[in-house]
Write a protein that binds this DNA or RNA. Structure first.
Lengths: 360, 360
DNA sequence: CCTGGTAATCAAAACGTTTTGATTTTGATA
DNA sequence: TATCAAAATCAAAACGTTTTGATTACCAGG
């Protein structure tokens, strides 16, 4: 490894001069600058970020905690976030939590050890992770994404509105009996989408709709099993308003599994039963039938999250500096601790998987 | 931040004693050990990995360069790799190359700055990236995954065999005219799968098969467009052995797009045309019709890649140490520079998307 | 009762940077 | 020509660790 010392020696200047050439924090004469640059080039010098981080107390990296990268929703989110972070000079340390609180705690500790400047966190469970709250208490800037946690800053989509648009659509088509397959019960995304759905159905003129609720995981297998379980219970053999004529899945993966199961039950989508998803991942446009879903602006969500996190990081650093400068007196209490929640709009994408209910 | 110094002071011992308690490299008396541990606990001390890395010259982190996380194939690979790395005490820095050589070079430089111990690299183009080769030349251990690069160590699946199994299957079903939709022309995975396909067809008794070749990108849109383009050229209107009765896609994404297009052309899969994919990502089991594909053991590939990389890293470190110890004489030339290539087996998964060709 | 090895501890150097105070040089102004 | 500020440079401290002699205390073997 060639170090800044080697460069200094090669250029015949002091170490600090090389540093100043690189950072531009102090004026350097043109001839010296050129000599230094030449030496850097010639020796292939690359500053050691560990050393930089040690003195600057900032690693210029973010921790990304995500439940399940195999899910393309999280995949594209992670991709967009990494790109946004890279654009602003930050690296991303990937952590696969698998929704396991133990793993999360483990990762959090590692990330703090690595002096990350901030955390991008996808919650996957209802109760906020203890270790996360400790990290927040320890002063690490955090932005929560996708799933709301009340007193933490975050970026989300308007899940209620998405649900409402679905509800209106289905009501207008004439559906009076729905099966809602949620993710984990009580999770804000699930609850908001469901409440939105109810509101939309009401707006669509269906005052009283038969709404069957099931909860579980955000996975294809869950959608698949719920449908089969319902079938075993005779749900789809019922008549009149007892029989659901549409399945509303809380996300696209669940819908995918449900679609598979419906097909195995010889229920044609959308002829015998409509189906909707949520998130709008790429494959929903490609499958047969193409899936009616609510599209999240994933890139915008990801960018907004990184943006917000970097803002917080800067604020945090300034705060620390100010504290250090004026440690003897507290001139004014901290400004109102507003917790920013960015909410982005969603778009209903109507595709082949919905139709009026069968009449019989 | 509480540092090792604070702990030392609190426990009434020297800094090096604390370090030895933590590392176990020198004996420490039980009472002292307990006092130190208590202080660590009480102060919530967490060693600063930047500082550790600076002195140990190892950041205990790996760079992961992946073309496109939105693709669930790469998503699950990345997930499995991160988990394997984490299990062995390494963190993963995520880099989204998007197949852009400029971005790759950029990331590589950043990763070297960050003193990563090794690189996990998914090549996406035929010509190996210049910057990557420079990194290798600079002595950074690299393991290439999925796509072969001849003189770099790597982990791959038996693409030829996968192609062959598909060929045998289709030949046995009676197909005599196929459309192969590849990824980028010349890419080893594409070529191997195609050559395997040919071999399989021959083995299956179809000495001469009409094989129409198209190349492009590993994306759904590519499969979609190729099918439509072929239709415009009248490929599917041809008669006899001119008309392909099966479409072999070089991966699942292409197959997904092709399926969509075939459906738009009113060609039923598999009645009018069979279809196969490659990789075996989760959704292939869920779509309609479920997709016949070649399953990669992604977790095993990922684990093997991490394993191999860590081996190389250790070897590299020992090598450096030995060099330093015995710098005056070269006792023996380096052992034969064997480039390990781990090849893992694939599994043909036959599902609904294939059938005998229509007879007419 | 000495000898030597090991256990236990400490002090100091090193890792590669940035930052800061001090010093010298330069150029313009009075 | 003397003065002063700004420009240009350097030396040294600091960041939080690990590693490595060096030192002391202890105990067993002769």
């Amino acid at each position: 490894m060639t170090t800044i010392k080697d460069v200094a020696r090669a250029a015949g200047v002091s170490v600090s001069t090389v540093s100043h050439v690189l950072s531009g924090r102090r004026p350097i004469s043109e001839p010296t600058r050129l000599r230094v640059m030449e030496a850097i080039e010639r020796l292939g010098y690359r500053p050691n970020r560990l050393a930089q981080g040690l003195v600057s107390k900032s690693s210029r990296s973010l921790g990304l905690l995500v439940p399940d990268l195999a899910n393309p929703f999280f995949g594209s989110m992670a991709e967009a976030m990494e790109i946004a972070a890279h654009d602003r000079g930050y690296s991303v340390i990937l952590c696969n939590t698998n929704l396991d609180p133990k793993r999360e705690a483990d990762y959090l500790s590692m990330l703090l050890s690595r002096q990350v400047d901030g955390l991008l966190y996808f919650p996957g469970t209802r109760v906020p992770n203890r270790a996360l709250l400790e990290a927040v208490a320890a002063g690490v800037p955090v932005v929560v994404v996708d799933e709301r946690i009340d007193n933490l800053p975050g970026v989300f989509v308007d899940n209620f509105d998405g649900g409402r648009q679905l509800g209106r659509l289905l009501a207008q088509l004439g559906h009076r009996s729905l099966l809602f397959i949620g993710g984990p019960e009580g999770l804000p995304t699930v609850t908001d989408r469901l409440n939105g759905l109810r509101a939309g159905l009401a707006e669509g003129g269906r005052a009283s709709v038969n709404l069957l609720l099931r909860f579980g995981e955000y996975r294809a297998s869950h959608g698949y099993e719920i449908i089969h379980a319902c079938a075993r219970e005779g749900v789809f053999a019922a008549v009149g308003d007892e029989r659901p004529t549409a399945v509303v899945a809380a996300n696209d993966m669940i819908a995918l599994g449900a679609l598979r199961a419906l097909r195995e039950l010889q229920l044609h989508v959308p002829r015998d039963c409509s189906l909707t998803g949520f998130d709008g991942v790429e494959f929903t446009a490609m499958i047969t039938p193409s899936l009616t879903t609510v599209q999240q602006p994933s890139t915008r969500v990801a960018t907004a999250a990184v943006e917000l996190l970097l803002q917080r990081i800067e604020a945090h650093e300034n705060h620390r500096d100010r504290e250090r400068a004026a440690q003897e007196h507290q001139p004014y209490a901290d400004a109102a601790p507003v917790i920013p929640h960015v909410v982005l709009p969603v778009t209903l994408v109507v595709r082949e998987s919905v139709a009026p209910p069968p009449r019989n």
